[in-house]
Design a protein around this nucleic acid. Structure first.
Lengths: 149, 149
DNA sequence: GAAAAGCCGAGTAATATACTTGGGATTGGG
DNA sequence: CCCAATCCCAAGTATATTACTCGGCTTTTC
């Protein structure tokens, strides 16, 4: 039941991007340095995020990434699901195209997997990047951030 | 964020065992056949469950396993955590000996991981094997069960 | 005493993860 | 106009994990 580095790194990087939202596009290189993540690996994560419509890219020198919407419109859930796929604990209860199971009729454990899925989704869908920025400012109690996330 | 077969098979097997609770000890062979799980693999899972005090074994011919407590006292959470380890989505928020992180101070994403952990635990700790048996009887609407779980 | 069960440790094939590598395309600044 | 910075993309790879299998021992009933 662990999240992979995709979700963990991806969310950290997205929060970093959100914190720098007002500065225009931000290069992956700078995010990678601040968050101590492989830049090449981050590229792969941002390719997914871009295709999901969560970030926009600006190519060329001085290019980078920007949030596609305001931080208050981007939920943690949309980021995690983009990167990790469904957060369902078992494939048979994935939101889209659930895996077929020959014993699905009268399957009792499925009820549990659905409850877990829904409760995880409820948590992550209720938190936006804006919320995290607020928490971040509170925790670090300063205006020039330490960039530690 | 997927559960492994340990958790999935283990819970199915435990529910099977609970359904046959009144019949005394049940052999892994019969559970393996009904649930279509490798018997050798089930052995490993039940070794864990036994060491966790969730089931008791009876050795020798005609031996098998029995629930260590009544189905109403065994939660899905205790079974899943025994088999899967902590259900925390990230090691830094495991209930016991959380992984140390050099950026733990002011870490914002950690708040999310804790919320996910707690909500998953709340779900699985609120469901007992007894609850599942009840659901099972309701879904299958008969007294001699199909044993499909 | 033989068969049926649990117990145990080691081995292994397949899969997934977490990257790295090497290049190509685009664009701003000198 | 070139070049460095940056995004873009596909493929390769080392490591770890998963999901088992295998072989043999121990205990107990019939």
């Amino acid at each position: 039941m662990k999240l992979s580095t995709k979700g963990r790194y991806g969310l950290k990087a997205m929060l970093d991007l959100a914190i720098h939202h007002s500065e225009g596009q931000i290069s992956l290189k700078s995010i990678a340095e601040r968050q101590d993540i492989s830049e090449n690996y981050l590229e792969q994560l941002f390719a997914i995020l871009r295709k999901s419509g969560i970030v926009k890219s600006i190519r060329g020198s001085q290019g980078g990434y920007v949030l596609a919407q305001g931080p208050d419109s981007i939920t943690v859930g949309s980021i995690l699901r983009a990167l990790e796929g469904s957060l369902a604990p078992v494939d048979c209860v994935m939101e889209t195209e659930p895996a077929q199971c020959n014993r699905a009729e009268g399957c009792v454990t499925k009820l549990i997997w659905k409850k877990i899925r829904d409760s995880v989704n409820d948590v992550v869908d209720s938190i936006t990047l804006e919320d995290l920025i607020t928490e971040y400012k509170k925790a670090n109690n300063k205006d020039d951030y330490m960039y530690y996330i």
